[in-house]
């Protein structure tokens, strides 16, 4: 910065402003920076459950971690898989918010980079990170309706640190 000021001495007033302006842009701006993005590569799938009160936990390896009420009724279990992209080596935080979907509630999320909220995950040198998700699904039989392919909404929130 001192170098820039010295160079401005004796120059027309316009140069004195132009140089700091360029420097400001260089310091403040990842002008070529990438927006954070999330791409779902595998949808989280709990298979089938009975329309009975209970909760089951889907792990990070397509596995059933817990089913104390015995409500899992087969089907293919798949953990969620996502590709997060952004600036190479960028650090970011990650959180997941579940919801209640007509008696089918998602919560207690887990990920391969830690249990949310994850405060300091990092993208790799090409600006990518693959993350696996698991979660707990709670069934309230009085509100849930039998049927196939019920959707269970949730939101992933990521922020550059």
């Amino acid at each position: 910065m001192n170098w820039t000021v010295r160079q401005a001495v004796g120059q027309p007033p316009g140069r004195a402003f132009a140089l700091p302006a360029l420097l400001l842009l260089t310091l403040a701006g990842p002008a070529g920076g990438a927006d954070l993005a999330i791409l779902e590569t595998v949808q989280m799938d709990f298979g089938a459950v009975l329309d009975r009160n209970g909760a089951l936990t889907l792990g990070l390896s397509d596995n059933l971690v817990a089913d104390p009420a015995g409500i899992h009724a087969g089907g293919v279990l798949t953990s969620g898989r996502f590709l997060i992209t952004g600036d190479p080596f960028a650090a970011f935080s990650l959180d997941i918010t579940g919801s209640d979907n007509d008696g089918l509630s998602l919560g207690d999320f887990d990920t391969s980079v830690g249990q949310p909220p994850v405060l300091n995950a990092a993208l790799n040198g090409i600006g990518q990170l693959s993350v696996r998700f698991g979660a707990a699904l709670t069934v309230q039989a009085s509100r849930a309706d039998p049927g196939l392919d019920h959707l269970l909404a949730y939101t992933i929130t990521i922020n550059y640190n």
């Binding site: 402003f17 132009a18 302006a21 360029l22 842009l25 403040a28 701006g29 990842p30 002008a31 920076g33 990438a34 927006d35 954070l36 993005a37 999330i38 779902e40 949808q43 989280m44 799938d45 709990f46 298979g47 089938a48 459950v49 009975l50 329309d51 009975r52 009724a73 089907g75 969620g80 089918l104 998602l106 979660a135 699904l137 069934v139 039989a141 849930a144 309706d145 039998p146 049927g147 196939l148 392919d149 019920h150 959707l151 269970l152 909404a153 949730y154 939101t155 992933i156 929130t157 990521i158 922020n159 550059y160």
Partner: peptide
């Protein structure tokens, strides 16, 4: 010139993202 540069090269990028997703499940009659 400064104003033009600021407009042409935004210095801020999207720092946060809320991404809605869906899992799925079949609910069977007991």
């Amino acid at each position: 010139s400064l104003a033009a540069l600021v407009v042409a090269f935004p210095v801020s990028q999207a720092l946060a993202l809320d991404s809605p997703q869906d899992a799925k499940v079949d609910v069977f009659i007991a």
